[in-house]
Simulated scan of single mutants.
Amino acid sequence: MELIADKKDRITWHLACHQSDVPEEGGACALIEGKQIAIFHFTRRGEWYATDNECPHRQQMALSRGMIGSQQGEPKVACPFHKKTFSLKDGSCLSGEEYKIKTYPILVKDGLVYIGI
């Protein structure tokens, strides 16, 4: 499925998983176009997010197993190894370092989760 925002921006939606595959208040990982994508479900907020699964601090594929929460209202994930925290909205590092993760559009429809690449 492809949506075109304008002539330069094309988003192709990829089926990642069933909604039930992602734990409530947690994350899961999907392989899409050879990339590990972390998918997060904030059940209590009714929000979904998708980011790279790789933590840029030590290049470990671990973010989908990180703890999610919020920092001054900003949804975030903490790397399970070194506790670097990242905004799930824009990927910026909330721990004060210059690291950044890529974020992806996400769509949940009819019990299925799609990631836009």
Rank of each mutant, 00 (worst) to 15 (best):
V108I: 09
G69V: 07
L63Y: 02
Q71H: 13
L112A: 07
I68G: 05
R58V: 11
Y99M: 09
A62F: 03
A62Y: 03
P105H: 09
I101L: 10
E98P: 09
C93F: 06
I101T: 05
S95Y: 03
G73H: 09
S70C: 13
S92T: 14
Y99C: 03
K100C: 14
G73K: 14
I68C: 04
K109I: 06
T85Y: 01
K100T: 14
T85D: 06
R65P: 00
H82F: 03
A78D: 12
G73R: 10
C79I: 09
Q59C: 10
R65N: 05
I106T: 04
I106E: 00
K83P: 00
E74F: 04
M67I: 14
P75T: 04
I68V: 07
A78E: 06
Q72M: 13
L88M: 02
H82V: 11
E97F: 15
V108D: 00
G96N: 13
D110Q: 06
M61A: 13
S95C: 09
Q72N: 15
F86V: 08
S64W: 05
G69A: 07
K89W: 03
G111Q: 10
I106Q: 00
S95R: 00
S92F: 10
P75V: 10
E97C: 15
V108M: 06
I68H: 02
D110Y: 03
T85M: 09
S64K: 01
K102R: 13
Q71E: 15
V77N: 02
K100R: 15
R58N: 12
Y99T: 04
P75Q: 11
P105A: 11
G111C: 12
V77D: 01
Q71P: 01
P56Q: 09
A78C: 11
E98S: 15
S92A: 14
G96V: 12
H57P: 08
M61K: 13
D90C: 07
V108T: 07
Q71V: 14
G73W: 10
P80K: 05
I106Y: 02
G91W: 00
G91S: 02
G91Q: 02
P75A: 12
D90L: 00
G69T: 08
E74N: 13
K84N: 10
S70P: 01
S64M: 06
I101P: 07
V108F: 02
V77P: 02
E97N: 14
E98K: 15
P56Y: 11
K102Q: 14
P75E: 08
K83D: 06
D90E: 07
K83Y: 08
